[in-house]
């Protein structure tokens, strides 16, 4: 029973961190129809920035806020000065779909190389702002700590804010409209380029938060977020790539599958489990199991 409760709680925590990453990928996908593989690089770079701020200020919270802000700024800058010129130049031919994605892979390599150059390949740590000692239930310590609880609360608040932004504000309406029919959105008076950059900024901020919530449980090094990129990507695909709800739900499915495999079978099967789920979804319901896309009638 205790094992089960622990597995559930751990699933929620890891699932919520995957959810931040899958949300970041979905935000970019919705705004520019690109899978942003550089997201792992952006997230780790902003986490290093958060780390530097913590070293100087002594406060995790100041570091957290700065990482989120830096994530947004870096995300917006990448779209404005790197992706947008690529979109403007490559408008026809078979390369249209693939070039921007390859560009993000190139960017990932560059960002990680720069991080390696600046901070070295050694492992750094970020201390959690609250205790990482597991809670006690029925006299035994479980693998769920106040820090894990904090992660859950932070992610829940973030998701609620994003949902409010998208569903309840005029800006959210513009974000949703631009995602599907940029041409009509433009004709309706929406500056679609700016809205796309905003999508990248929101994604960058979510990635920054993901890094700052993930690293205290592990280490900080140039490839620290690669595993989150893989799981975030799988979660986003499970969720249908297009919806924020799908991104969170997909991340939770993955979080539960991975943690229950670890608890009840073997931790060696984590990656095979994740990829089997990905392949099953692609074979059976390629639009994603939580996709809200309906069949077109026309």
């Amino acid at each position: 029973m205790l094992k089960f409760i622990t597995a559930v709680l751990t699933s929620l925590t890891t699932g919520s961190i995957y959810a931040l990453m899958s949300t970041a990928l979905v935000l970019v996908w919705r705004s520019t129809r690109v899978i942003n593989f550089a997201q792992a690089g952006q997230a780790v770079l902003t986490t290093y920035i958060g780390y530097e701020v913590i070293v100087r200020s002594g406060s995790y919270w100041v570091g957290l806020i700065m990482a989120i802000v830096a994530g947004a700024v870096i995300g917006a800058a990448i779209d404005r000065f790197f992706m947008r010129p690529i979109f403007k130049r490559i408008t026809t031919g078979p390369i249209v779909m693939i070039a921007p994605v390859v560009a993000t892979l190139g960017l990932l390599g560059i960002v990680q190389a720069i991080i390696g150059f600046k901070w070295g390949l050694t492992y750094q740590t970020i201390a959690a702002p609250v205790s990482t000692d597991g809670y006690r239930i029925f006299g035994s310590v479980i693998a769920f700590s106040p820090f894990n609880l904090m992660v859950l609360v932070c992610v829940t608040i973030t998701m609620l804010l994003l949902t409010l932004l998208f569903q309840k504000t005029n800006l959210g309406l513009a974000l949703r409209a631009s995602a599907h029919s940029p041409e009509i959105a433009k004709l309706s008076g929406i500056k679609v380029d700016g809205i796309r950059t905003l999508g990248w900024a929101l994604a960058g901020a979510a990635g920054g938060l993901a890094g700052m919530l993930f690293v205290p449980s592990t280490y900080l090094y140039p490839n620290a977020m690669d595993v989150l990129l893989v799981f975030g990507f799988i979660a986003a695909v499970i969720g249908g790539l297009d919806s924020l709800f799908g991104a969170v739900a997909g991340a939770m499915v993955l979080g539960f599958a991975i943690n229950f495999t670890t608890s009840y079978v073997s931790s060696r099967l984590v990656f095979p489990t994740a990829f089997i789920i990905l392949i099953l979804v692609l074979l059976i319901k390629p639009a994603g199991i939580f996709s809200n896309k309906k069949g077109r009638r026309d």
């Binding site: 005029n170 309406l173 513009a174 949703r176 409209a177 599907h180 029919s181 009509i184 959105a185 309706s188 008076g189 929406i190 809200n292 896309k293 309906k294 077109r296 026309d298």
Partner: peptide
């Protein structure tokens, strides 16, 4: 047609008033 498929009818019309 040119509507935003995943928005509601009301939201579709509201987009036209965005400015």
């Amino acid at each position: 047609v040119g509507l935003f498929p995943e928005l509601t009818v009301l939201e579709n019309v509201m987009v036209g008033d965005y400015k």
